[in-house]
């Protein structure tokens, strides 16, 4: 589904990713772990198409399409969705409005007409209840005055409504208390299916207790230096990153 090959990325002339390769297949959940500054967020930002990142070498393909040639919105419409670590506030724009505009834009790209209002409301309310969010959320401005936990829930709510093929979650667990973490994790788990994949970037093993990954990768100094299953995450939790570093240097 997603194929990243020998990716080199620079920010302001400084190389952050130094030959990263990664393959994600449909039906899989991947977790990328690593210390601060290793390039975790850079990876998801580049895949999503954020400005300010220069790809100097390598390739990204998604279901056979060259991602680097696609506009930001084209990537989203193709099913590549990013759950933000720090979702931005958009004053005066209601959540419900953003959701509907996004869904309709994606439907239009698939040659489908606008979603009928009753169907849309039914779907949104269902997902809202699943995320244990109050319906008044829909009438509030996007992320404005939301607590950290509310913002993260809102990111997952959007995922549930928009049903991406590949959901990328950037530190979706940061700033969450344990109850909120459980709700967010349930949301992500409900996305799991044979046709879909999830790519999570995280610092902490804690998240992986609730969203059990199929594959865990260690990202160190711009490269994936070790891959394994969920046990690797547990090992990282108890032993830290140094041993991986030493192992890869050897």
């Amino acid at each position: 589904m997603l194929e990243v090959k020998d990716l080199h990325v620079s920010v302001d002339g400084k190389e952050i990713l130094k030959g990263l390769s990664l393959t994600v297949n449909a039906g899989e959940v991947h977790a990328i772990m690593g210390p601060n500054g290793a390039g975790k967020s850079t990876l998801s930002s580049v895949i999503a198409g954020k400005d300010g990142y220069e790809v100097t070498a390598g390739s990204i393909t998604f279901e056979g399409r060259d991602v680097l040639e696609m506009e930001i919105e084209e990537r989203a419409r193709a099913g590549l969705l990013l759950g933000f670590q720090y979702p931005v506030e958009i004053p005066g724009v209601k959540n419900i409005y953003l959701l509907k505009a996004a869904l309709n834009a994606q439907r239009a790209a698939r040659g489908e007409g606008e979603v009928p209002a009753p169907e849309f409301m039914k779907r949104v309310k269902e997902k809202l209840a699943f995320m244990k969010m109050d319906p008044s959320f829909l009438q509030r401005a996007v992320n404005e005055g939301f607590s950290g936990g509310e913002k993260k829930r809102n990111e997952i709510l959007q995922m549930l409504v928009l049903e991406p093929r590949l959901a990328m979650l950037d530190e979706i667990d940061s700033g969450l208390d344990i109850d909120a973490l459980k709700v967010v994790a349930e949301g992500v788990n409900s996305l799991r299916s044979e046709e879909r994949a999830v790519l999570m970037v995280t610092h902490y093993q804690r998240l992986l207790d609730y969203i059990v990954p199929d594959k865990v990768h260690v990202l160190l100094d711009g490269r994936i230096v070790k891959s394994g299953d969920k046990d690797l995450a547990l090992e990282l939790e108890s032993r830290g990153y140094e041993w991986v570093q030493e192992e890869s240097a050897a």
């Binding site: 506009e71 919105e73 989203a76 419409r77 990013l82 931005v88 958009i90 409005y97 505009a101 834009a105």
Partner: peptide, 17 residues
């Protein structure tokens, strides 16, 4: 970026904001 990453075109995103 946030709006476009949800699939909304740049022009529609500007209008919305």
């Amino acid at each position: 970026f946030y709006c476009r990453q949800r699939g909304i075109s740049e022009e529609d995103a500007v209008n919305m904001i």
